[in-house]
Design a protein around this nucleic acid. Sequence first.
DNA 1: TTTTTTTGCTAAATATATTTAGTAGATTGC
DNA 2: GCAATCTACTAAATATATTTAGCAAAAAAA
Lengths: 333, 333
Amino acid sequence: MKKRVLISDIAKALGISVTTVSFILNDKAKEKRISDALTKRVLDYVNKVGYKPNQLAKSLRTGQTKILGLLVEDIANPFFSNVAKHIERRAYETGYHIIYCSMDNDEHKAKELIQLFMDRQVDGFIITPSEGLEDTISNIKQNNIPLVLFDRFVPSVETNYVVSDNRRGSYEATKHLLEGGNKRIGLISLYSNQTQMRDRLDGYMEAMDEFRVQSFIKKLNLDSSEAESQEQIREFVVDNKLDAVLFATNYLAVDGLKALKQHKTSLPKMVAFDEHTLFKLHDPSITVVSQDIEQLTRELIHTLIAEISGKLKEVRQLTIPCQLIVRESSISS
Amino acid sequence: MKKRVLISDIAKALGISVTTVSFILNDKAKEKRISDALTKRVLDYVNKVGYKPNQLAKSLRTGQTKILGLLVEDIANPFFSNVAKHIERRAYETGYHIIYCSMDNDEHKAKELIQLFMDRQVDGFIITPSEGLEDTISNIKQNNIPLVLFDRFVPSVETNYVVSDNRRGSYEATKHLLEGGNKRIGLISLYSNQTQMRDRLDGYMEAMDEFRVQSFIKKLNLDSSEAESQEQIREFVVDNKLDAVLFATNYLAVDGLKALKQHKTSLPKMVAFDEHTLFKLHDPSITVVSQDIEQLTRELIHTLIAEISGKLKEVRQLTIPCQLIVRESSISS
DNA sequence: TTTTTTTGCTAAATATATTTAGTAGATTGC
DNA sequence: GCAATCTACTAAATATATTTAGCAAAAAAA
């Protein structure tokens, strides 16, 4: 257990002041007119003894923790864990670390966690806001903490966000089903006012209206059990004699598949929102509206870092196109 | 943007010293003989103004960051993202935060990340060690940083670990296939000396030897492309005319399913290690050896917190039983 | 009454950096 | 030749807590 080297040890060893060492280590040698000779001497010595500044002391003084807070709906959902992986990689490349947590659509938990992260003085937030978070989000803004919303946003508060073009994605998916000759097409969604859900509903409606056919909409409770959800999905599909179904999230589609498999109901044509390993392998393979995680996370981190470094002059609100990936489940034989 | 309240503000407002406030806030009022009256007065005031100590200053002074470092193989793998979710929840309950990252079986990246986390002075590590990390793990131990290995361990270094009983899980799975009347049973694994892979091989071997039948073993490279893996799996299964296959990881099984689906090869009987949403829904549904994530993470956090708080008197090495969940894929019709 | 102990609290040191304000000496300007 | 400017640094303040060592007054013991 070797003792940590301090900046004062370096100063003492080289017979110079702590200030000088600090300037050199923070790339202010030129600005502060430290001679090249001394700069080199310090840098060489620092390298030799492998000095690393204490991040805590540094953060305490500068107010920058180089930590970002990532709050997603559920890190165990493959969509979000994929997002988390991309974000993590990009953040590390830029010298930031990520602390994360799942909010599980629990308003109380979310508020507590955001407060906890603020107490920890994260340099910025990435949040997929669940409902009821208007005040909290607004509070973050008021405290001037850099923030980017993700996957959905809060219309009543003007913030940066990066989301997918859910309305268009949903429209294209529905149109695809309509053009396949399906008449009775249902949408399975959630009782949720989150923007992504509203947009997916809107897109579905727009396509249905365009084709002048009746719409069938079933919303499930966020907190209903898997068994309840499955039963409701089955009923909805069977009772309405649906030809095709658009699922508003990947896990709704998974629930749907389970429900229909269990009851040996023959599968209607279907499209799901968001990719899932299952979908490529399922028999039949499942058509999806896929979000461009690569681009979403790139813009996300880019926006957040820009805001942190003060380079962002105005609010940045991006909508990234989705891609309809047609597989077997939506093709009429 | 209201200004932060400092401990000195409180002291000033109440006309007492900073020391006294600090004692009271750190539950040392009794020990330091602060009067009950004053204690209450301070606590009430703190509550009123909503004072929260600056974590950075606190950490700098005490050396405790209340942050744990979680290093997993791949956070996008559903097994690990599930683990991450459980760990996160338990950690927060105990007042700890998690910074995480994926090591992607990249030795260099892993070493860099561990060093980074050490520089950040995490209070403890949770690591699924990839190969070549003996020295780094040993280094963590030498620096007296609390550590629990997970999913696999490093035999050459004596550390805490929590792993599943992979040997037994593999043995049971193989035996189950043997008892189903399958003769030619193959194991698909990885070129890896990690303990969990060795144990899964051992368990397979033990069962095969017990039944006195020839074993078929195929190992894939960690870094081979999906296409390569798939081709090799297909060849292995077809060339050896296998009746059944045991896959040593969930993603190998997924690759296998993709490979066999693409080439319309009829599916042999199969069992996979680790659960995956896909497996319940696949047709046929896939039999798995399931790890008890609930118990694994409970023991994990419990052990780590015990070590951090100095309550752990000796190294703790736990092996948790797996469960064989029999589904359609392994049952002989 | 004097000494000892206890009570209830505080001043100053500490953790480890960054940053502001300033200084001594050398050089330049006029 | 003397003021003004520049060069190359540094002392001290700062960020915000925790912790050690110690002090004055009150109570108890002698």
